[in-house]
Write a protein that binds this DNA or RNA. Sequence first.
DNA 1: CGCACCTATACCCTGCCGGTATGGAGTCCC
DNA 2: GGGACTCCATACCGGCAGGGTATAGGTGCG
Lengths: 283, 283
Amino acid sequence: MESRELVYFVAVAQERNFSRAADRLGIAQPPLSRAIQRLERRLGVRLLERTSRQVSLTRAGEVLLNEGRKALTNLAAAERLTRRAGREPRLVVVTKPAGDAGLLEPILARFAAHPDTVEVEVLICGIGEQKSLLRDGTADVALLRTPQTDLSGLATEELLTERELVVLPRTHRLAGRASVRTVDLADEVFPRWSDESPGSGPVITDTGQVAELIMLGQITAVLPESVACRLGPDLIAVPVDDRRTTLLAAWSEERRDRALAAFVRTAAEVAAARSTADALTGA
Amino acid sequence: MESRELVYFVAVAQERNFSRAADRLGIAQPPLSRAIQRLERRLGVRLLERTSRQVSLTRAGEVLLNEGRKALTNLAAAERLTRRAGREPRLVVVTKPAGDAGLLEPILARFAAHPDTVEVEVLICGIGEQKSLLRDGTADVALLRTPQTDLSGLATEELLTERELVVLPRTHRLAGRASVRTVDLADEVFPRWSDESPGSGPVITDTGQVAELIMLGQITAVLPESVACRLGPDLIAVPVDDRRTTLLAAWSEERRDRALAAFVRTAAEVAAARSTADALTGA
DNA sequence: CGCACCTATACCCTGCCGGTATGGAGTCCC
DNA sequence: GGGACTCCATACCGGCAGGGTATAGGTGCG
């Protein structure tokens, strides 16, 4: 099976529409139809049920969509890793906006002095993209927060655990509380951090929206302490007693190189130092 | 990256020779050279160092060989699983000659009566091929023996543990012993069960060779009891006290379907019954 | 120095891949 | 119910990728 055919099939299977898929692929619709027909012929299996009104997946089509996506991810990873191996060694670290709890800068400073240091590129990606960037080889290490749904294939190191705070407008009924518990928040509207994530509120596409929407009373948000403190003076942040979040360093479990190991170790050291400092300050 | 290019590269990287690789791929050498050049150009990385006398891998080439093989295996698995999903559900069970300890027949009989039964195809493969057949989706479940070098990605269930016996010609110095230990066999010549396996003796390509070679005094072999007993009356089998082997059912850890689970469970039941019977007979 | 071996280049040809135009089936809506 | 719309399939055509043969060029060996 040619990988291009598989890319085509995945596009059609996702769009459930030949014309839109062709559009996305940057080719015309007829060649796409033929490519899928050829693929079906070669596999000896019907992948799609088409009527003139809708396209649906057969059992075999579902299998190929799932397995094929994995295979294509692997192929992309092989390509990226190969490209990287040909260049100067460097690390790509990926985080999301405000997702590093302020640790990244000291980590980079300390790592630069490490004997196994290499050049580091920092990538700030959209919400929920980090794991796929790790898996396809674009990034070497990510800063993630627990809880995470699917960490398969990734190795992790816990960096630090933070309180979580609910962020509210000044006028909110809970704004005067010294602390709250999760049950107190049962009636609140929380944003959905990505298209797929559960929740009742609006989908967040830009982090700047969050403070805005909270101020307007549209939503509330529960955020790690390091993030909540930076939203601005017009919002009240109240600790949620029974919630904690942990910042993780994560990387592909198969990767074994000195620079990566050194980076993770450095990150853990910086985080440990920070935790100790916080404990002293808090006390 | 097109999968065909990757197949070509892997062939060259393994053969370390364009002409032989082209031969194996069934194409001429010049198109192969061009394909590799194109791949290198597209990746922007040199993969192979060629002199007119030898081809060697660059760092990037090694990465692509390793990662690419994985990706191609996944691609093949996606293809096979898709093909299978389009047909009647069935299980492919793979074992090697005499590798089932006589369990397969009763397992199949019992499985046929199971509520979740499906058609079963039995594949008897060459030595050392089982794991790759599982990984590329050709087979659903394999009967393997411990010790095994690399079971990553596979789930296993222990079926039964057997004694191992050393098989000797009648005239052998140890032929009269009631039992031996591994240290007693230090001077013996053992066959190599595949091209890669360690050992001093000849490479076995056909199981029929083994009895033959033992009879001629060329080698000795340590085999599971169930196999050793069937080599014929002209050979003496002496128990090796300090060696045991376990028969495993193994399958891809990602697979989750009722028929597969039912098969493994049935296999375990049959094996348990056999073990009990043996214990009674032996006592 | 010639021979054997191996890869790269030159050149040709076939067939695949992609494009445009159009057909035909089903759905929506007035 | 008919026209318009949507959507996939078919027909046909052109360009180029990919494969073949012949051969050049470099290197180790006797």
